[in-house]
Write a protein that binds this DNA or RNA. Sequence first.
DNA 1: TTATTTTTTTAGATTTGTCTAAATATATAG
DNA 2: CTATATATTTAGACAAATCTAAAAAAATAA
Lengths: 217, 217
Amino acid sequence: MQSFTEENYLKIIYHLSVNNDQAVQTNAIAEKMQTKAASVTDMIKKLADKQLVDYKKYQGVHLTQTGRQAAINIVRKHRLWEVFLVEKLNFKWDEVHDIAEELEHINSAELVERLDEFLSFPKNDPHGDPIPDKHGKFDAVPFTKLSKLKTGEKGLIMGVSEHSSAFLKHLEKLGLTLGKTLTLTTITDFDGSVEIIVEDKKISVTREVAKHILIRI
Amino acid sequence: MQSFTEENYLKIIYHLSVNNDQAVQTNAIAEKMQTKAASVTDMIKKLADKQLVDYKKYQGVHLTQTGRQAAINIVRKHRLWEVFLVEKLNFKWDEVHDIAEELEHINSAELVERLDEFLSFPKNDPHGDPIPDKHGKFDAVPFTKLSKLKTGEKGLIMGVSEHSSAFLKHLEKLGLTLGKTLTLTTITDFDGSVEIIVEDKKISVTREVAKHILIRI
DNA sequence: TTATTTTTTTAGATTTGTCTAAATATATAG
DNA sequence: CTATATATTTAGACAAATCTAAAAAAATAA
């Protein structure tokens, strides 16, 4: 069993490597963990001793098979708890992240399986992210960023790549929630912002926001 | 905010003093915390610095008002989570203690209030223990131990004073669950064991077990 | 390819919660 | 009331996770 902190490192290394087979760099981990590179090096050595990561000095880390399984299990728990908080306790999608960050460390395989069943085996969390099954499997549905859509293209909002409360509240206010259909009408050369139509309303979205909205065409 | 460990100390001090206004002794805490007296002394000093306990050297500790509130809040969370585990996730009453020991440390007042509501504001946990409301209030229903009943007396099982899985499974097997009505027929002088009738069945219970069954006459 | 910048690691210190062993205070027994 | 036993505290050490400052390696630029 891993400590709280070790679990957080594994999770962050997983997120930093999931879309990318490169080694994960010390500084990248330090930034996400809000800590210093020296601390990361110390922890990496510990994780390497436990065979949870492969590590060569100055070369960054890769999760081992065991390390990846552990990380995916934490992600599974995080996302299941988010579903619970939204579906059962009526939290909004922008309120659940921090609470799930705590709940994801509760240690009981039985609890997770029963929670999964209680929630009717959800496939996605409230932000559209896929929930791994008990074997760690999940389908990575292909997506495009809204910022990559071309004029006239139509799509469905299926997720976000930024989970801060501020960002999610902003989307909510614009009516850009999961499952909504949109059509891109204009791309502004000047600043990259895009005009879209959602439920017959015209909305302008900055490029920065559009980059974090995931679309299935 | 307190650390995990500090919360566990507060909770244990609370349980050791709830039926008893005496100061709580270092050794008693050490035993419950499965640690050494020296460690307890160290922690007590820290809790005293934080004004969570009153402490005079060699004289044991008392919870302060703040410390008691903190402890009751942890107990509240523990018991609410136990109800959730039994009522919603179909755990048995002997399976929930350890999981609730982890869940009780999740920090979110909003979460607790919503969980309470989701569970329809339960008054007691699966072992019969009262659940404090959000202000820390609860009614201490008076009870008698089964071992104190007299021959011929009738009562209702309303709780237990021992929460180990082994004990609870034993009661389950004997059919001695919350809400059952029983009549005491015989007290054996020799070993203090008692014969009771529950649902028309005659059952013999050792004195040790009878001491941990709480009865309302 | 040498110089400079960036990244990473090492060395040594700090904090939290724990420990053992020894010292001190309190309680109990004769 | 002294001796013994029990309970508690102190002193000093350790492991985990972190930090700062300095050293070393790797990447980049001139």
